[in-house]
C-alpha cells in the first residue's frame, strides 16, 4: 500500500502538467472567438511573415508572428485546436465504444466469437494505418465527419486487442468463477465483475487514442485530405509552414510544438488516469 502511495505522488505532477496543457488548449479552442487575438482567416499583405514577439520587427497583437499571407499564427493555432479536439474526442470515443465492446465480448465469451473478432482484427491491422486513412478519406470524401469516421474505423482494433487480452486475464480469475457459482448470468458477470477491472485500461487507451487522432487528423490535413482548407487546422498550418521554412521558421515550429505537446499530454494524462482509476495502484 505504501508503494501505491509513493507511486501516486510520482504520478501527480505528470497528471497536472498534462491535464493543465490539455485544459488550456481545450478552453482556448472552445472560446476561440473570444481569446483569439485576430481573425484567423484575415490576410494582410502588409503584415506578411511577421516574426514572433521577441524578435525584431514583431508587431503587437501578433504574438507568434504571421504566415506568408499575413494571417496571425496564434489565432490560427487556437482555431485549429477546435477541429483537433472535435476529431480527437469523437473519433476516440467511437473507436473506443466499438473496440472495447468487441474486445470484451471476444475476451469473455471466447470460442467462435473470439475467433471471428480476432481474425477481423488481424486482417484489419495488416493495413498500414496512414495509408488506410488516406484511402478511406479518398473513398468517404473529405470533410469533418469522414475524417472522424476514418480514424474510428482504423483504430478500433487498438482497443479491441488490449481489452480482449485484459478481459481474458480477468475471466480466469477466481472471483469470476465465484460469481458463476453464485449464479450470476454471463452478461451480468461481464458487465459488473469484469468491466470495472478493465476500465482503467480503457481510460488510458481512450486518452492515448485522442492523441493519435490529433496526429492522424494533422497528417490528413497535411496531405490536404482533411476538411475544407479554409478553416485552419494544425496539419494544414504545418504544411504551409514547411513551404516557407527559410523565410518564416515559426510557421512550422509553433504548430509542431503545439501538436507534440498535445499528443504527449494525451498519452501521459491517460497513463496517470489509469493509475488513479486502478484501486490496486491507487
Amino acid at each position: 500500500m505504501d508503494e501505491g502511495r509513493a507511486q501516486r505522488r510520482g504520478v501527480s505532477p505528470r497528471l497536472w502538467l498534462a491535464g493543465g496543457w490539455l485544459l488550456l488548449a481545450l478552453l482556448a479552442a472552445i472560446f476561440a472567438p473570444l481569446v483569439g487575438p485576430q481573425d484567423p482567416l484575415a490576410q494582410d499583405l502588409m503584415l506578411e511573415r511577421l516574426p514572433p514577439f521577441w524578435m525584431n520587427g514583431a508587431e503587437p497583437g501578433y504574438w507568434l508572428g504571421t504566415d506568408s499571407l499575413g494571417r496571425d499564427l496564434l489565432s490560427r493555432l487556437i482555431f485549429g485546436g477546435r477541429i483537433a479536439f472535435i476529431v480527437a474526442f469523437s473519433a476516440a470515443i467511437a473507436a473506443c465504444l466499438v473496440g472495447s465492446t468487441l474486445g470484451l465480448i471476444a475476451g469473455y465469451f471466447g470460442g467462435w466469437a473470439d475467433r471471428i473478432i480476432s481474425r477481423v482484427v488481424d486482417v484489419w491491422m495488416a493495413f498500414p494505418p496512414v495509408l488506410f486513412a488516406i484511402l478511406l478519406v479518398a473513398v468517404l470524401g473529405t470533410g469533418l465527419s469522414s475524417v472522424i469516421l476514418a480514424i474510428a474505423i482504423i483504430d478500433w482494433t487498438r482497443f479491441c486487442r488490449v481489452i480482449r487480452a485484459e478481459t481474458m486475464g480477468q475471466s480466469h480469475m477466481d472471483y469470476v468463477e465465484n460469481a458463476r457459482i453464485a449464479g450470476y448470468g454471463r452478461i451480468g458477470i461481464m458487465l459488473r465483475e469484469v468491466l470495472p477491472n478493465v476500465v482503467p485500461s480503457i481510460v488510458a487507451l481512450l486518452s492515448l487514442e485522442m492523441g493519435i487522432a490529433v496526429i492522424v487528423e494533422a497528417i490528413l490535413s497535411f496531405v490536404n485530405l482533411s476538411i475544407s482548407t479554409d478553416d485552419p487546422t494544425w496539419g494544414g498550418i504545418i504544411a504551409e509552414g514547411r513551404l516557407s521554412i527559410h523565410q518564416a521558421w515559426w510557421v512550422l515550429v509553433f504548430p509542431l510544438i503545439t501538436l507534440i505537446l498535445t499528443v504527449l499530454s494525451f498519452s501521459q494524462f491517460g497513463e496517470a488516469l489509469k493509475t488513479r482509476f486502478d484501486p490496486v495502484l491507487r
Binding site: D174, E177, N178, D278
Partner: peptide, 14 residues
C-alpha cells in the same frame, strides 16, 4: 458456496 484457496483472487479487486 466455495471457500477458495487464494483469498486475493477470489475477491474482485475493483
Amino acid at each position: 458456496a466455495l471457500i477458495p484457496q487464494d483469498p486475493l483472487t477470489a475477491l474482485n479487486p475493483s
